[in-house]
Amino acid sequence: MTAQAQATTIIDVGKLVGSVEHYRNEGYRLVQIGCTKVGDTYEINYSFDKDYHFENIRIVVSADTEVPSISGMYWNSFIYENEMHDLFGIQVRGMNIDFKGTLFRTSVKYPFSQPPVTVTKGDKP
């Protein structure tokens, strides 16, 4: 089993649009945008692929930072950006299709930014 090379570059929020534009011009396709909560900050990974060459850029933001949308370069990014907003509560500026929090309607608002619920093992069924 060969491990794939997975370069991850950490950049500032301000440089996001420029970097994404670079990938777009190089002919990469957007693989995914994923968010991870680490402590009080959120890591947002933008993954790109071209001919099986996989690259990541990562921005680290706090909960109240507004992230610019990349839907100008990648039209399909709206689905990930809406997901990010609905599950993590990250504000994304300028999405081409803004569901305004209705893509995933959850019983808990911004569930992934909530602390984990206590483990309820062995409770009575």
């Binding site: 693989v31 995914q32 991870t36 990974n45 993954s47 039209w75």
Partner: peptide, 26 residues
């Protein structure tokens, strides 16, 4: 795509599953 992040404990920090249908919607 399965993105997994662990911090050395028995519990992972994040598992993110990006499935093909999600990216096929656009």
């Amino acid at each position: 795509v399965h993105y997994l992040k662990g911090n050395g404990s028995k519990f992972l920090v994040r598992s993110r599953i990006r499935t093909p249908t999600l990216t096929n919607i656009p």
